[in-house]
Amino acid sequence: MLREVTGIRYVTPLREGGSVPGVVEADDLGTYVVKFTGAAQGRKALIAEVIAGELARRLDLRVPELVRFDFDPVIGLGEPDQEIQDLLKASGGLNLGMDFLPGSLGFDPLVFPVETAEASRIVWFDALIGNVDRSWRNPNMLVWHRDLWLIDHGASLIWHHNWRTARAASDKPYDASEHALSRFDPDPAAAAAELAPRVTDALLTEVTGLIPDEWLTDEPGFDTPDDVRRAYRELLLNRAADVHRRITLAPKQGERQPPPEWLRTWVEGKNAQ
């Protein structure tokens, strides 16, 4: 089970993402980015965060610690924004917290170099979980103590929003042509050789076992939370076997066309700052 903490002070909302997470202090003296069950994406975004984050951790990719976060909306009464108030009031009880990394910087592929091996592992992992939210427009990675950390996986596992078509959806190709790490020439086949054998039924059982039962109850088409967990395991196990063959990559550096003039001008201006 994930470690559980209780919120004691709502600090501020983070408005960059559509789910509007909040920075909240907890009773363990830690500070967390909390994603709320009352957000528009609902509990499935939190399920995706748990599965993706804890699977990544077991594959030796860096993800901030995830915790079960007990939240009482009363601690957010000082927040003046009515929309945020409505979100907090709808999110009493169990939510999901991610350890806040103080001093971290948003990843910029034009500034921070990444080794091909690490880029390969991350691209393969994103293909495995069907992560559509790691493009150069929105990398969802942080640089902390010079290391790359993965965040925000709520938009992954998109097929779980319609279980009737989940198998067909999960078999579709994965487009990594605009992935934030595409400029580092990732080799998904090499990453698959290293990581795919580690994605076993036992590992996925451990990971899906971390999802709280209350986020899995009343799922249409399933009788019990364990039935839903089994569906996640079967899809991910099947996908791990051959997803590397269905990844569309951007052309390698040496094969790419020169960047457009507007992009060269922007980069030169950024480097001059």
Rank of each mutant, 00 (worst) to 15 (best):
T6E: 08
I8V: 12
R9G: 00
R9P: 00
Y10G: 01
G18L: 07
S19E: 04
G22K: 00
V23L: 11
L29H: 09
T31K: 08
R43H: 08
V50C: 07
I51S: 05
R58W: 06
D60R: 15
R62Y: 00
V63E: 03
V67K: 08
F69S: 01
P73E: 05
G76A: 10
G76V: 00
Q82D: 03
I84K: 02
D86Q: 12
D86Y: 06
L87A: 02
A90W: 02
G92W: 03
G92E: 02
G93K: 10
N95C: 06
L96A: 02
G97N: 00
D99F: 05
L101V: 03
G103P: 01
S104E: 00
D108H: 09
V111C: 03
A117Y: 09
A117C: 07
W124C: 07
L128P: 13
N131H: 11
D133A: 14
D133F: 09
R134F: 12
S135E: 10
N140Y: 08
N140T: 08
M141S: 11
L142R: 12
W144S: 09
L148W: 06
L148V: 09
W149R: 07
H153L: 08
G154P: 10
L157M: 15
W159D: 10
W163F: 15
T165F: 13
K172Q: 13
Y174R: 10
S182K: 12
F184D: 02
P188L: 12
A191H: 04
L195H: 07
L195Q: 10
R198L: 13
V199M: 03
D201C: 09
E206L: 14
L210Y: 05
I211P: 03
D213S: 08
E219Q: 14
P220I: 00
P220Q: 04
F222P: 04
D223I: 00
D223T: 06
T224D: 05
D226C: 02
A231I: 03
L235F: 09
L235H: 15
R239N: 15
R246T: 11
R246Y: 13
I247D: 08
P251G: 11
P251W: 12
Q253K: 14
E255A: 15
E255W: 10
P258F: 08
P259L: 15
W262D: 15
W262I: 13
L263C: 08
E268A: 15
K270E: 13
A272N: 14
